[in-house]
């Protein structure tokens, strides 16, 4: 199978372009997505290629953008909305939670609401409390939503294409650290491919401890794993679930049954976060295999400020520390 090298940001654009070319019902809408090329140039060129009716520049009206996507989706279209920063999702909760997520079920299967919301995690840039945080557990909590967290160009393209074709509302997270091209190159097949939801990827095999990590946590965990192997002789298995809803419980459980130890790495706030759910799931289903308590490496429960990210966001050292505490105690 022929392969090519692509940057994360270009992989996302390629997924959008391919799906728009394949299906005339795919519509992009959001603030600055057309003429403005997207706030971070993700949608560059699509307005010129597909026209203003399919790449729709909207007013600053987040709630109505997502509400309009619900209408479009019920009417048979497949809208892909851009919500510029993750915390802006607070503005779209009614159409998303009370409508998009529920209408298929409460209508008795009469309608489907296929839509994707692409949103950006902008941590580590001093963007502040209303631009920086990563909120994923909000949406894991809601039945019938898909929560997608790709950490490589390969995962980003394959999962975005699947999301656009999926019949449920999907929240698709991108991270600002993935946008610069040079550090975010990866191989993908030349030909079309899709990645099914609910299939975790074992990014590194190991036998002493399982680290479940998402987004920027994956790279940090892989680097921590290398260091731990070299310096302490600890063998770390790193699993990237890639989709939090649906969650590939089996791959995580199989790994924990092998290693007996679990660390969850994510940059959502710690309390009632992604790690809390994964830890609870493992405790519920595989307690007898655990040789040590579960560790959660996450953002401290303090509002993110202009300057405090270096103190509250988890980093590689935090992962190393958590693993050592579990294995060497």
């Amino acid at each position: 199978m022929a392969k090519k090298t692509i940057a994360y940001i270009d992989a996302i654009r390629e997924a959008l372009r391919e799906e728009m070319a394949r299906d005339p019902k795919v519509i992009i809408m959001g603030e600055d997505v057309g003429l403005g090329q997207g706030a971070f140039t993700v949608t560059k060129g699509l307005y010129q290629e597909f026209g203003k009716d399919r790449v729709i520049d909207t007013p600053i009206s987040e709630e109505s953008i997502i509400g309009a996507c619900v209408g479009l989706a019920m009417a048979g279209f497949r809208p892909v909305a851009e919500i510029m920063f993750n915390p802006f999702m607070a503005l779209v909760m009614d159409p998303l939670i009370n409508h998009a997520a529920c209408y298929r079920y409460v209508s008795g299967g009469q309608v489907k609401v296929p839509m994707v919301i692409r949103t950006l995690v902008c941590q580590g840039r001093g963007a502040g409390h209303d631009h920086a945080p990563f909120y994923a557990s909000w949406f894991m909590h809601i039945p019938c939503l898909r929560v997608i967290v790709p950490s490589t160009p390969y995962d980003a393209k394959g999962l975005l294409k699947t999301a656009i074709r999926d019949d449920y509302p999907c929240i698709f997270y991108e991270h600002i650290d993935f946008y610069p091209r040079k550090p975010n190159l990866g191989e993908i097949p030349e030909e079309e491919y899709l990645i099914p939801f609910g299939e975790a990827d074992i990014k590194r095999e190991g036998s002493d401890v399982t680290v479940v990590a998402i987004l920027t946590g994956v790279k940090a965990s892989l680097s921590a794993a290398e260091k731990l192997e070299k310096e302490e002789g600890i063998s770390v298995e790193v699993i990237d679930p890639r989709t939090l809803a649906p969650l590939d419980k089996q791959t995580i459980l199989n790994s924990v049954k092998k290693t007996g130890r679990l660390v969850v790495v994510e940059t959502d706030f710690k309390t009632a976060g992604v790690g809390a759910e994964i830890a609870a799931m493992v405790v519920e289903e595989a307690l007898e295999y655990l040789d040590a308590p579960v560790k959660r490496v996450a953002t401290k429960d303090i509002p993110i400020s202009f300057t405090n990210e270096k103190y509250i966001l988890p980093d590689e050292q935090a992962i190393v520390k958590a693993v050592k505490e579990l294995v060497l105690k």
């Binding site: 109505s64 309009a68 996507c69 479009l72 009417a75 279209f77 009370n98």
Partner: peptide, 18 residues
Amino acid sequence: IVGATFPMAVGFGLACKL
């Protein structure tokens, strides 16, 4: 939800237009 159908109507309207 009072007022929730305004944006849905916009979505339906876009569909009609397209």
